[in-house]
Nucleic acid binder design. Sequence first.
DNA 1: GCGATAACTTACCGGCCAGTCAGTAAGTGA
DNA 2: TCACTTACTGACTGGCCGGTAAGTTATCGC
Lengths: 212, 212
Amino acid sequence: MTDLPPRWRRRKDARPAEIVAAALDAFAERGFAATRLEDVAARAGISKGTLYLYFPSKEELFKAVVRQTLLPNLAEAERRLATSDMPTPEMLSEIVGALVAAAAGRMGVIPKLLIAEAGNFPDLARFYAEEVVARGMRLFARVIQRGIARGEFRAVDAVRAAPALAAPILLMALWKNALEPHAVHPIDPAGFFAAFIDIVLHGLAAETGRKG
Amino acid sequence: MTDLPPRWRRRKDARPAEIVAAALDAFAERGFAATRLEDVAARAGISKGTLYLYFPSKEELFKAVVRQTLLPNLAEAERRLATSDMPTPEMLSEIVGALVAAAAGRMGVIPKLLIAEAGNFPDLARFYAEEVVARGMRLFARVIQRGIARGEFRAVDAVRAAPALAAPILLMALWKNALEPHAVHPIDPAGFFAAFIDIVLHGLAAETGRKG
DNA sequence: GCGATAACTTACCGGCCAGTCAGTAAGTGA
DNA sequence: TCACTTACTGACTGGCCGGTAAGTTATCGC
């Protein structure tokens, strides 16, 4: 008679990742404070009580979302940093291009969340500032240095120029994940990146006999 | 005997501006959702009830904060756009420099608030996207066009390059108003801007007999 | 099958805070 | 100085939501 499918299943292993994914979606839409844990639970196909079996509080869930979304991209960036003999302009273009693309996607909501909640989660803000932003800046500075050392770039101040490479990533992350859904005029990520990298590479290029 | 100062004074004219200023501070620290109207009232030196005499709801107060903080800067930007015969590189440097400086100051919290709350205030988000972002992009595109027309810049795609000029403004606004308070490594706004504008101006400069 | 276990649900609690309103006292003007 | 207006106060409330715990049911070992 009652061979209906069970009302729920035990899936202890899969839950945490599903909850984190659901929470990322929910936070992306409404922000941390405004999303109800009941909504997160519903998106994950569970009840609120179950959520508390896996995460002790809303705050800890938030931290898990940030860490788990960020770490794969951090690892990927590190991997890319691995030695490569390609010319520095191409290398720079590849690294920044990959990050701009990632920022235009799902990962881009993380900066948005962190910026919004920095005041309420100082430890997370410091983690992000040091482990992500500062690390990224060092990476960019090293790439520029490499170009200078190899005679491909002018002798600019690499440390001060590094944020200029981070800026388009941030712009793309926030535009795609906050304003564009409400805007009339879209930005084409590929076109924007092409124009940006064109200017930067021309701007950094070693001079070959011009005014100076 | 009781010549104490009065417990409060009637200051109908001054209240709204004071409340908006207090709210901007409070929102800047904790974000919109997490700030209590009682805190805003205390900062403004009034009671919560008084606040409701001037603003019908927390949402309307938020909108007033955004509009009143933004409009003076918009007007200033428009004014700067006014005809000027200086060379385009200098003009570009002045316009972007002024905006980067403004972003590093008080006005910078507005992008932060809007980005965080875009999902919850679609009309504000659209207003900002169209009236501020899109307008700024058009301004930058026009400046680049001007440089090209006068033979000072290479023939780049002005519309696609425009966001590259907006990016450092955004970076500065969010860095100063969200992450820097929790970070160890500061960014020097002037140094950053100098490096950025150096690269961009070199990158846009008309070619004078080099490889191509 | 048949407990035993633990993954999951549901109903509930308590604190917090936006928003209200009756009352109070600063100002006004005659 | 006194009657009147109104800017302002502050105690209160109603609903919302993070968090909890008692109860229910899938699953697994025997």
